[in-house]
Nucleic acid binder design. Structure first.
Lengths: 173, 173
DNA sequence: TCTGAAAGTTTTCATCC
DNA sequence: GGATGAAAACTTTCAGA
């Protein structure tokens, strides 16, 4: 799939949608200088190009009772492509894996778990890390404060200067 | 603020909204066995209780040209409450900080950066980590593969069994 | 607290620029 | 590509149970 060509209005729209996807087409159009239907056409283009996925509701982790976030740093035993593929499949099977990244550097995977209560957290960590034949070692960092959570991505390097600082800020500040 | 009381329907609705917040009230109501207006009343309750925040559009990082995700493990110099507060404020000023967690264990903060191109990444890491007076040391783990990204939270411990495995899965699988 | 219907908006699409 | 306007669909409110 070839990358979509994005102009300035596209970058602005994508930043706005990542902050609040519930705004109306008219509202968005007013902000970027387009009619509602022109906004819709662009949004449909992002979707069919695979750039824009679903809209999701964001919960505030501080308001979910007993929620425990933890960051697990994982070193795996056997880094063949095939074993890697299988390990990633096991991670994806677990709904508690909120995020998983294959990384370069001192570890092989960074996995963020979202669990309800310590019992749950331990059970999941045991299954995914302690008992997994492909994990050499791992460390758990428990989250004391989720300073910021979000999945907003910049679509271009922000211009230097204060005016653009808000552009890609996540929705859960 | 006191926690909201959530029944089974609430847990189901919250899981559905975290997967796809664009579904209609009628559609959601059909799935959980309520009328559209009953669903609306519950959603409004989550919002006013602070549990449910904005809806956000999720981009696929693999489709954003030049996007670089990196996980930075940070050890800080001076862990007084006041210095910690100031450091978190500096992190929150940077739009490139997609996620930041204060953690217990081998490091003090885990920071996920989302940047456009290596030049941008280096510039941000220099500012937030190398040049920050409160950072003792840090390591950068570059993301080779974003196996899963998302912010879905479970609101209750999932029952054991295959039926519930999809319940809280993120929207970007 | 729910249902069901009415009123007000929004999304969507055909058409023209 | 974008604007306009009409039709369809959705959200929101409220009366009644």
């Amino acid at each position: 799939m070839t990358d979509l060509m994005l102009d300035d209005v596209d970058h602005d729209l994508l930043a706005l949608l990542q902050r609040d996807a519930s705004r109306t087409l008219r509202d968005l159009g007013d902000e970027v200088g387009l009619s509602p239907s022109a906004v819709l056409r662009r949004v449909q283009r992002y979707r069919s190009g695979g750039l824009l996925g679903h809209n999701v509701a964001v919960l505030d982790p501080r308001h979910v009772p007993e929620v425990i976030l933890s960051v697990c740093l994982v070193t795996i035993e056997d880094d063949t492509p095939e074993e890697g593929r299988r390990y990633r499949a096991r991670l994806l099977e677990a709904p508690e894996v909120q995020q998983a990244y294959e990384v370069s550097g001192d570890y092989d995977y960074v996995v963020v778990l979202a669990c309800v209560g310590m019992r749950h957290e331990n059970e999941v960590a045991k299954r995914l890390f302690q008992q997994d034949p492909n994990v050499k070692r791992y460390t758990t960092l428990f989250v004391l404060d989720p300073v910021r959570t979000g999945v907003a991505l910049p679509t271009r390097e922000p211009p230097r200067g204060r005016a653009s600082a808000e552009e890609v800020r996540g929705a859960t500040d």
